[in-house]
Design a protein around this nucleic acid. Structure first.
Lengths: 192, 192, 192, 192
DNA sequence: TATGAATGAGCTTTCATTCAT
DNA sequence: AATGAATGAAAGCTCATTCAT
C-alpha cells in the first residue's frame, strides 16, 4: 500500500473512531489497532492527535465551502433554485458524511480555543456568504428589510440543529424535507 | 462559612473555570485554588468533576424551563406577546448567565454520552413545547401548515446559534434585536 | 452516657467494622457513623486508627493469656484434664468472639511490622507455655522425646488453622470436636 | 530487553518488594524504581497492583500443587516415604522461595475478599488431598479412626505455622527437622 | 518505512487526622 | 466533651508521544 493510500486509510479510521467515541475518549490505540498499524507508524503520517482531528475538520470545511456557492444574480438559473441547490448540496454532504458531521456538530465544539476559533471562522465565512446574498437581494428589492447578520446566523443555526438532531436520531428527515421546511420559514418570510 | 454557602461558592467558581477553560482543560486544582480551599474540600461538596458540571447544567436547564412557558390560547394576553415574552425571558437569562451559557452551548456538547443525552433530553422538551404551540396554533387556524418538528428544531437552532455567536463575540445583539429578527423570520412566515 | 461506656461502645463497633471489612477497607467514617458520633469525637477516645486496632488485639491477647494456664504437675487435677480445659477455654473464647478472632487470624496478619511483631510476641509466649509444659512432661517421663519448639508450634498452628477455617465457614466443628481431634493427634502421639 | 524477560524481571522485583514491605506499604514507585523502569512501563506488563500480586500467588500455588502428590497405595514406594517426600517437597519449595512464602503466609491473608477466597480455595484443595489420603488409609486399615477434615486442617496449620515462624526468624528448623517432628506427632498418632 | 517498548507528566480521588467553634 | 468542616499528602493509573532498532 503506498504512502498516500495508507494515510487516508488511517484518516478514515480516525474519523470513525472520533465519531464513535468523541475526541477525548478516542485513543490513539483505538485508531492504530483498527488500522492494523503500530503506534509509532501513526506518527509517521500525522504530527499528533489534534492534527488528525484538525485535518478531518478542514476536509469537511473544504467540501462544505465547495457546496456553498454565492447566489449569482446574473445567472440564468432562478435565484430560488440556486438557493435550494445550495441547501441541498450542504445537506446531502452532511447526511452522507455522518461521521464527519458528528465530529463537526458535537466533538469539535468546545474542544479547545484553537478549534473553537476554527469553527467560528468557518461559520463566519458561511455567514458572510449568506449575508452577502441577503444584502444583494435587498439591493435588488427581492428581499424584505431585515437584520442580515441575525437572519444569516439563524439560518446557519437552523441547519446545524436539524443536522444535529438528525445525527443523534432525534429527528427523521430527508434533505428534501429540510429544504422544504427551511423555505417555508425563511423563504416565505424573507422574499417579497 | 456554612455548608450551603461554601457549596454555592465552589459551584460559582467551578462555573467560571469551566467557562474559561472548557471542561477538559479545567482542573480540579484550578477550581480549588481560586476558591482558596484544599483539594479534599472540593470532594466534600461534590462527588466528582462531572457531578459539578452536571449540577451547573441542571441548574441552567431548570431556570430555562421556568423561563419557557407554554402558550396559553385562553389567556387574555395576545399570543404573539406571550411568544415574545418567552423568547425574551430565555435570552435575558442566557445573556445574563454568560458563563453557564458558554458551558451549555460549548463545553457540554460532545462531552460524553451521558451529557449528550442530557442535552438532547432538554432540547427534546423544549421542542415538544414549541411543537405543541405550533400544533395548537394550526388547530386554531393561526399558524400556516408546516412540519412542526422541523420548524421547532429550526427555532431552537436559531436561538442557539445566535446565543453561541454572541457569547463568542462574533455577534452584537440585544435581546430585543434577536426577538425582532426571529419574529421577522418565523412570525411572518408562520402566522396567518 | 459516661466516658468509659462510650469508649467501649466505640471499641465494640470498631471491632465489628474491622471484622466485616478488614483493617484497610474499614474507614473511620464507617465506625463513627455506626456509633452515631462525630468524626472528631473518635479522636477524643483514641489516638488513631491503629491504636483502636491494637487495643482490640491486646484485649484478645489478654483474655487468651488468661485462658491459657500453665500445667500444674503438683495440682490434684489430672494433667490431661488440665490440658483439655486449656484448649477448651481458648476455643470457647475464640468461637464466642468471632469478630475479634477474625481480626486476629486474618486482618492483623501482615498489617505492618509493628503488628507482626505483636502477633509474633504473643505466639511466642504461648509457645513458651506449651514448650514449658512439654519439657516438664518429659522431665517427669510423661511425654515422649520430641522437639518441643516444633511440636509447640505445630499445636498452635493446628488450633489457628482450625479456627481460621471455622471462622471463614469452611469447617463446621464444635469446641469439643476440636478438642477430641487434637487429642487424638497430639495426645496419642506425645503421651506415654 | 525482550518482553517476557522484562515481565519476569518486574515480577521478581515486585515479589521482593511485597515481601519486604507488605502489600499495602509496597508502592508501585518502589517497584519501578528498583526495576529502573518508568511508572508507565509497569502498566505495560500488568493491569494493576493487585494483578501482580495475584500472579505471584497463583505462581506459588501452582508450584505447591505440583509438589503435593496424592498418595498412591498401589505404588511400590512405601506410603510413609511418599508422605515424607510430599512434605519435603513442599517445605523445600517454601524455604527456597522465602519472599513468595512471606507473601503467602502474611501479606495475602485478609488482603481483600477475593484474595481470601483464593487462599481458602487453595487450602481447600490441599485439605481435600490430605483427607483423601487419610480416608484411603482408613479403608486399608492403615490409619486410625479420626475426623479426617479436622486432622487434615491441623496438618495444614502445623506446616503453615512452622513455615511462618521460620520465615519470621522465630524458629530455626531444616526441612528434615520439620518432617521428623510432624511424623513424630501425626505419624505416631495416626498410623496403626 | 515500520515497529512497539518505554516514557513520565499529570490527573483524579481518598481518607486519616486536625482544630476552630 | 462534642462537633464536622477543612486539610493535603499520597497514591494509582492513563495515554500521547518518543526513539532505538
Amino acid at each position: 500500500m503506498k504512502n498516500a493510500e495508507r494515510r487516508s486509510q488511517v484518516l478514515a479510521i480516525a474519523r470513525d473512531v472520533f465519531a464513535e467515541k468523541g475526541y477525548h475518549a478516542a485513543k490513539i490505540d483505538d485508531i492504530v489497532q483498527r488500522a492494523h498499524i503500530a503506534r509509532g507508524t501513526f506518527y509517521l503520517y500525522f504530527t499528533d492527535k489534534r492534527a488528525v482531528f484538525g485535518e478531518l475538520l478542514d476536509d469537511l470545511f473544504g467540501r462544505l465551502r465547495t457546496a456553498i456557492r454565492r447566489i449569482d444574480v446574473t445567472a440564468a438559473e432562478p435565484l430560488l433554485d440556486q438557493l435550494r441547490a445550495n441547501v441541498r448540496r450542504v445537506l446531502a454532504l452532511l447526511f452522507e458524511e455522518r461521521a464527519l458531521t458528528k465530529i463537526l456538530v458535537s466533538d469539535a465544539v468546545g474542544l479547545d480555543p484553537d478549534f473553537d476559533e476554527k469553527l467560528l471562522a468557518f461559520y463566519g465565512q458561511v455567514r458572510a456568504v449568506i449575508e452577502g446574498s441577503l444584502a444583494e437581494g435587498q439591493r435588488l428589492g427581492l428581499v424584505q428589510p431585515c437584520a442580515p447578520e441575525l437572519v444569516a446566523t439563524a439560518v446557519i443555526g437552523s441547519v446545524k440543529e436539524i443536522v444535529y438532531q438528525t445525527i443523534f436520531g432525534r429527528l427523521q428527515a430527508s434533505a428534501d424535507d429540510v429544504v422544504s421546511a427551511l423555505f417555508a420559514c425563511y423563504g416565505r418570510a424573507l422574499l417579497r
